Amino acid sequence: MSLKFAPSLFEVRDLNFTRGGNEILKSVNLSILEGEYCAIIGPNGGGKTTLIRLLMGLEKPTSGSIKLFGTEQNKFRAWNRIGYVPQRSALVDATFPATVREVVAMGRYAGRGILGFETSEDAEAIEESMEQMGVSDLRDRLIGHLSGGQRQRVMIARALASHPQVLIVDEPNTGVDVESQHRFYELLRLLNKTKRIAILFITHDVGVIAEDISKLFFVNQTLLLSQTPQQMLRCDQMSRLYGTPAHLVSHNH
């Protein structure tokens, strides 16, 4: 009997990206497998967000290839399999005229289109994602009237409404207090362990996530990759990544 292996959720080979004559990313190779818990770190301007946008098809590579679920990106159509929370999404204008439920319902658009009618399946998925993120009681509140931590959970609920197999989050803690940050990481762990949703997120807070993630990507134009964060959390590697002498301090709690 032959064994069948599931394709990588993302498979990137020899990826290069140039904008305005400036080389933003070069020779990037990476893969993300089903159920993995991955983080991207690196200096500002190093290409972290650009890499995410390339994976999502929001930017086109100068050269190289990207496969999603084994399919070439230009032929991929099942975007509902990917949940995406962009950078600064929790920073919402106080006058934005949408309720929590309306915002979460936007996560179903990829499956039915913005002009499609909401089905009973849509309604069930919306309720489930709000319950998962603990925002069901906020359903009728305007999104702009919530705290930063509450808005963050609403945006995650919106991404989960399509029942994705991978969740991508860019700088999730912008505008969020420390307590909400810790609750957020607990939510990511729970989603990864209980729902087997693969997680990929950008962060500067290496200490909080180092013990939990399975794969750490260091991005500074090119990419340094470790299967486990413990293999890469060394002064010489961090100095190379950030382009300045770095010293790591271990805190035992």
Results as ranks from 00 to 15, higher is better:
residue 221 Q to F: 09
residue 132 Q to V: 09
residue 149 G to D: 00
residue 228 T to A: 12
residue 235 C to L: 14
residue 171 E to W: 00
residue 195 K to F: 03
residue 5 F to K: 15
residue 236 D to V: 06
residue 6 A to R: 05
residue 160 L to Y: 09
residue 101 R to P: 05
residue 139 R to W: 07
residue 193 K to W: 03
residue 238 M to C: 15
residue 232 M to L: 15
residue 232 M to R: 06
residue 180 S to P: 01
residue 51 L to K: 04
residue 3 L to V: 06
residue 73 Q to K: 12
residue 176 V to D: 00
residue 220 N to W: 13
residue 219 V to A: 13
residue 120 S to G: 10
residue 178 V to C: 06
residue 8 S to D: 14
residue 168 I to E: 02
residue 39 A to N: 11
residue 189 R to Q: 07
residue 100 V to H: 03
residue 144 G to V: 00
residue 39 A to D: 14
residue 114 I to K: 13
residue 214 S to V: 07
residue 32 I to D: 07
residue 86 P to M: 03
residue 36 E to C: 08
residue 216 L to F: 13
residue 140 D to G: 06
residue 178 V to I: 09
residue 166 V to K: 01
residue 193 K to E: 05
residue 72 E to I: 12
residue 212 D to S: 14
residue 18 T to N: 12
residue 54 L to D: 03
residue 113 G to L: 11
residue 12 V to P: 04
residue 32 I to N: 08
residue 51 L to M: 08
residue 4 K to T: 07
residue 240 R to P: 05
residue 82 I to H: 01
residue 198 A to F: 15
residue 116 G to A: 15
residue 34 E to Y: 12
residue 83 G to P: 00
residue 235 C to Q: 14
residue 230 Q to E: 15
residue 89 S to W: 03
residue 87 Q to K: 02
residue 204 H to Q: 15
residue 86 P to D: 03
residue 149 G to Y: 02
residue 32 I to K: 09
residue 48 K to R: 08
residue 253 H to I: 08
residue 109 Y to F: 14
residue 10 F to C: 05
residue 21 G to S: 08
residue 112 R to T: 10
residue 22 N to S: 15
residue 228 T to D: 12
residue 241 L to Y: 15
residue 41 I to Q: 10
residue 152 Q to C: 04
residue 168 I to D: 02
residue 95 T to N: 06
residue 253 H to T: 09
residue 15 L to K: 03
residue 110 A to E: 10
residue 151 R to V: 01
residue 177 D to I: 04
residue 45 G to M: 10
residue 40 I to W: 08
residue 192 N to E: 00
residue 166 V to Q: 00
residue 116 G to F: 10
residue 204 H to M: 14
residue 191 L to A: 03
residue 174 T to D: 01
residue 187 L to G: 01
